[in-house]
Simulated assay, not measured.
Amino acid sequence: MNQENQDLILQACGASSLRVGAKIQTLWSGYGEIVRLHLDGCDRPSVVVKHVKFPEEAEHPGGWNTDRSHRRKVTSYQVETHWYQNYSTNQNCRIPACLAACSHGDEMLIVLEDLDVAGYDQRRTSVKDGEIRACLRWLAHFHALFLGAAPEGLWPVGTYWHLETRPDELEAMDDAKLKAAAGDIDRILNECRFKTVVHGDAKLANFCFSPSGQDVAAVDFQYVGGGCGMKDVVYLLGSCMNEKECERRAQGLLDFYFTELKLAVKQDVDFAALEKEWREMFVFAWTDFHRFLLGWMPGSWKINRYSKQLTKEVLHKLKPEPENSSTRQKSKRVAKR
């Protein structure tokens, strides 16, 4: 880390010195890294720094290292920086505080509160029912907080798999029926009456748990933006349950989400209408992500019987109703006039 960046961090934290600790992770496709820095001379023992450095040649695990992919990633880091600098939440949907951020040339730096120090030091690769509910509670409060808010400075339509940003993956799909319906599914989701700000990448790996597992905080806001809250819900559920678990538990967990959402919504809103619309959008949101996976990673474990069944339901809903005999007779009479 160069001296300019070190000075920025020291000044932002009021620290006298710092030392680089463990690398937490490498960013997707080699676009930098997330590291923990240990501080001296201030009341913060450590901070987490997201250091983005655009590579001369990206190495995408799935081979999607195109100019379009690069531009999408660049925009995502700009959006994330804007998010941390301009948006805040509350204790019910906890995120790390942003202490400093800067960009110059092909580098970006975001200095964040260390959530481990704040009591969210647990990570999960699998979860029990109570831990899934903790994540759903976080999403419910997050969606309630931003219900009806314009996603200023964020993605107009959130989520990293949004159709408009993924034409290459759409083209790669083999499922002709779903490919043909992709635009209609996207339109239906985008034309929701009730919109909020969605996290956009609400998978299990982006939640930090308290030791009890009952409280969570969320990280990684590269694809935060406008949209229907069901997009986050289906992505979370699909990230931590297999097809049998989804078949058995998804509806009960969806009920829990709406119970929490109703408690969290503070503004005057027709909640019955909101719940009705978003429940209808559940299958569309799930199918929308399934569409992305079929083009992006057709061998994914998430492409399962449950996803295929929901997709079948959506395609059936989108089929035009066949004309009955009375409708045809009426059409003929109108034509004769």
Results as ranks from 00 to 15, higher is better:
160 Y>F: 14
20 V>I: 14
221 F>R: 04
296 W>M: 04
209 F>T: 11
61 P>V: 02
132 I>A: 15
3 Q>I: 03
19 R>H: 15
65 N>S: 14
104 H>D: 13
298 P>R: 04
185 I>D: 09
307 S>N: 12
120 Y>C: 04
277 E>I: 00
288 D>L: 01
86 N>T: 15
59 E>T: 10
16 S>T: 15
303 I>R: 08
1 M>L: 12
147 L>T: 11
162 H>M: 10
168 D>A: 10
5 N>K: 08
113 E>M: 04
231 K>D: 03
264 A>S: 12
180 A>N: 00
201 D>V: 09
176 A>E: 13
270 D>T: 00
308 K>I: 08
5 N>V: 10
18 L>N: 09
55 P>A: 10
135 C>T: 02
239 S>R: 07
326 S>T: 04
145 L>R: 14
6 Q>C: 11
277 E>G: 05
210 S>D: 14
322 P>C: 05
320 P>M: 08
294 L>Y: 01
246 C>W: 06
183 G>T: 08
334 V>Q: 06
242 N>L: 06
166 R>D: 07
49 V>T: 07
47 V>E: 01
181 A>D: 13
171 E>M: 01
267 Q>F: 00
194 F>I: 03
258 F>M: 13
198 V>S: 10
29 S>C: 12
54 F>W: 09
140 A>G: 10
48 V>E: 06
59 E>N: 08
32 G>P: 07
240 C>E: 09
318 L>D: 00
269 V>P: 02
281 M>K: 12
178 L>N: 01
263 L>S: 14
168 D>W: 03
299 G>H: 10
123 R>M: 09
111 V>S: 12
211 P>A: 05
86 N>V: 00
41 G>E: 06
275 E>F: 00
87 Y>I: 03
87 Y>M: 04
196 T>H: 03
298 P>K: 10
3 Q>E: 15
324 N>D: 15
27 L>H: 12
299 G>I: 11
103 S>V: 02
56 E>Y: 10
23 K>R: 15
116 D>I: 06
186 D>T: 05
291 R>P: 02
233 V>L: 09
246 C>T: 05
163 L>R: 15
184 D>G: 02
96 P>H: 11
28 W>N: 00
188 I>Y: 07
298 P>A: 09
8 L>I: 09
103 S>K: 11
325 S>W: 13
293 L>C: 04
52 V>A: 03
111 V>M: 05
30 G>C: 12
54 F>P: 02
291 R>K: 06
107 E>S: 14
337 R>T: 11
231 K>C: 04
311 T>Y: 03
104 H>Y: 05
43 D>W: 03
195 K>C: 00
255 D>C: 12
19 R>Y: 08
304 N>S: 13
173 M>T: 02
13 C>Q: 03
128 K>D: 06
125 T>C: 02
144 A>M: 13
125 T>N: 11
4 E>H: 05
47 V>H: 01
236 L>W: 06
125 T>E: 07
146 F>D: 03
58 A>Q: 15
76 S>A: 15
195 K>H: 13
60 H>G: 07
316 H>V: 11
275 E>Q: 15
6 Q>N: 05
161 W>H: 02
106 D>P: 01
73 K>L: 10
219 V>S: 00
333 R>K: 14
156 P>W: 03
125 T>S: 13
229 G>L: 10
106 D>M: 07
262 K>L: 04
